[in-house]
Design a protein around this nucleic acid. Structure first.
Lengths: 229, 229
DNA sequence: GCAAAAGTGTTCGTTCTACACCCATGC
DNA sequence: GCATGGGTGTAGAACGAACACTTTTGC
């Protein structure tokens, strides 16, 4: 999709840091640019804000183009506006991160990209502009947020095991939790609904499945409860 | 000071939420606009970003113009970019808050303002545009931040009493602390240097003065310590 | 001597940490 | 029957919450 120049705010862009969880590894979605500047290099997906869309909408539009997903957890992180962050002219970019249920399907490189791929956050390629810095800042932000709001669930399928949940937090935070203590703590919060279902097709004792109960969370939150891991 | 149109980014502004502490009340600095739109109404101080300055610089420039202060704690909060937040054309604004040592001196209304004043955050006038919303968002941000980073000290003079410190947290967070527990907790962190000085000219037992030791904090932080109130 | 705020300890309950073994399943 | 991860309890330490009286100073 192309846009007419007069519909675009040329000095404001949004960039997306799209996180997914793949086998206990935190990954981020990057595109390979097929336009100048830095044609052929890896970058965060993003684009210019349109005159008639909110900032949030702009970020969602990029995400939708890239993944086909629309009902996704997304949040603004920070705005990067150093004078020379973009070559030749002044562009200020607003960074948003998204937490999605990892998939290899539906990925479309979009008009400005020749390739799209998931990268382990511990094995990133070189990135264009200040995108490395943006990514690091966002990771710090995510690590702080994930410990005080129950957003990690957005990275998991609706039904998950406690071990998967623990693995998620270990991947995001880069730490190790004691299994018994982790389970006690998370179950005591009463945010997880134990299901009458277990894993299937695993070569060991099948784990019970749980789902996160958002309504319960909001009720508890209104009463002063705070999620804290 | 006036700027040439070609030096200005017309779609990007910064707005400042400047906090000060006056007698155990948290106050915010507002200006009365003497330009259209909304001439005569109260607003957050701010202005358009210049082509050759970083976002942070833009916010600092406004603060300096308003208060004459330059070495001030300042931090970006959030960027507000709804399509219709500004009348007639598209302006995205980046909000910064500042914590300053409250003063009535040096306040200058600046070129776009006919008046400047401190307002108790509990008794705010109506504000232009989405400034009410910006202020509320910033207050929430500040309340979260002040509990996990030792930034509250920026609102106090260099030498302060523990009672003043407690009053600061009570004003910002809108809560009451138990004096004994508060003192125990804050002193146990070893971030405060007790001085060989006490208050003078008070009609009661003079309190000991303390100062916050920033270097100690950074050393402890590097070792994994986190400030938590 | 009185008003006003400074300063100080203990008890009890809760939470955090560390730690090891049996269970269920698929192959 | 063995490999793989699932699932569980307890003891000791640290921390948080509640609570009241004496001290110092200026007037």
């Amino acid at each position: 999709m192309d846009y007419r120049p007069e519909d675009i705010l040329p000095s404001i862009s949004t960039d997306n840091i799209i996180f997914g969880l793949d086998n206990r590894k935190l990954k981020v979605l990057l595109i390979r640019r097929n336009i100048e500047p830095f044609l052929g290099n890896w970058a965060l997906p993003g684009g210019f804000v349109l005159y008639n869309e909110d900032l949030d909408m702009s970020a969602r539009r990029t995400l939708q183009n890239m993944t086909g997903m629309s009902n996704v957890y997304m949040e603004q992180v920070y705005t990067f506006g150093a004078v020379n962050r973009f070559p030749d002219r002044r562009v200020v970019t607003v960074a948003y991160y998204a937490l999605i249920n990892y998939t290899l399907d539906n990925l479309k490189a979009g008009p400005d990209a020749s390739d799209i791929n998931w990268f382990d956050i511990l094995e990133l390629p070189d990135l264009v502009f200040d995108h490395q810095h943006i990514l690091e800042t966002t990771l710090e932000f995510l690590r702080a947020k994930v410990r005080t709001e129950p957003i990690g669930f957005e990275l998991l399928p609706q039904k998950f095991t406690l071990t998967e949940l623990q693995g998620l937090y270990e991947a995001v935070l880069g730490t190790v939790f004691d299994t018994r203590n982790f389970r006690k703590k998370i179950l005591k919060m009463n945010l997880l609904m134990p299901l009458d279902e277990t894993q299937v097709g695993v070569a060991h004792r099948a784990a019970r499945l749980y789902s996160f109960n958002k309504e319960t969370y909001h009720k508890l939150k209104d009463k002063g409860f705070t999620f804290e891991l």
